[in-house]
Nucleic acid binder design. Structure first.
Length: 218
DNA sequence: ATCCCGAGGG
DNA sequence: CCCTCTGGAT
């Protein structure tokens, strides 16, 4: 299945628009529970107004909230951006740090966000277990784990490190285009013949979680 | 386990 | 109406 994914999505890549590590970090924070398409609608104005960690840290909270409102969770995200920028100024000389350990100390930055920045801004192999990655690897029967960290470790044993970042992009692309949460398009899926969840696949994530827990996939 | 919190699809 | 979208902090 991994080989077919690679052949189907040879050019899969991060679909958030960014020009430097700081922009990617901000865009990834905004992408929580939000489509990247919508993130890309608010970031041009945002990145024109705030260009450095210093400028983000000095941003007016209300103005920042209004600019990112449509991405949802806007108060929490504004708070994360302000705190993250402040800490980058205080502890990292205004530059986005390059390690997972340092990145996850930033407010609003968890393991998933840190791996996105490492993989796409710094070229460090990383597995980014988001909603798509978890759903697809469970449907494929690659893992039964629900905890993102356990999913990450399980896949790390199955796939060579050099492929981690591209696999993440490919699963996300496939999840967006074909293997959608609510209505997977099994009829046009290039993995159909190999997929344990073909046809009788769950049609929504809540159902999927219940089925995985009761153990029909193995 | 629950909260944050908006937009779009079915 | 209900679910989902590249989660993280409490």
């Amino acid at each position: 299945m991994n080989r077919i994914l690679a052949e189907t999505y040879p050019d899969a890549h991060c679909e958030l628009d960014f020009a430097n590590p700081l922009e990617l970090l901000v865009a990834t924070i905004l992408s929580a529970q939000c489509t990247d398409k919508r993130v890309n609608m608010v970031t041009p104005a945002l990145f024109a107004k705030y260009r450095t960690a210093e400028e983000f840290a000095a941003a007016d909270r209300t103005e920042l909230e209004e600019m990112i409102r449509s991405t949802g969770f806007f108060r929490a995200k504004a708070n994360s951006i302000l705190g993250m920028a402040q800490r980058i100024c205080d502890h990292y000389g205004g530059e986005v740090p390059h390690t997972l350990k340092e990145l996850v100390t930033l407010p609003g930055v968890g393991r998933k966000t840190a791996n996105v920045v490492l993989g796409n801004a710094f070229g460090v192999p990383g597995i980014t277990v988001d909603t798509h990655f978890g759903r697809l690897t469970r449907r494929f029967g690659w893992t039964k784990e629900l905890d993102p960290v356990k999913v990450e470790h399980a896949i790390a044993k199955l796939i060579p490190k050099a492929e981690w970042t591209m696999l993440s992009h490919r699963l996300i692309w496939h999840g967006r285009r074909i293997c959608q949460a609510r209505r997977p398009a099994c009829g046009v899926c290039p993995l159909a013949a190999l997929c344990p969840a073909y046809g009788e696949g769950p049609t929504d994530e809540a159902t999927a979680i219940k089925l995985v827990k009761s153990g029909p996939f193995s």
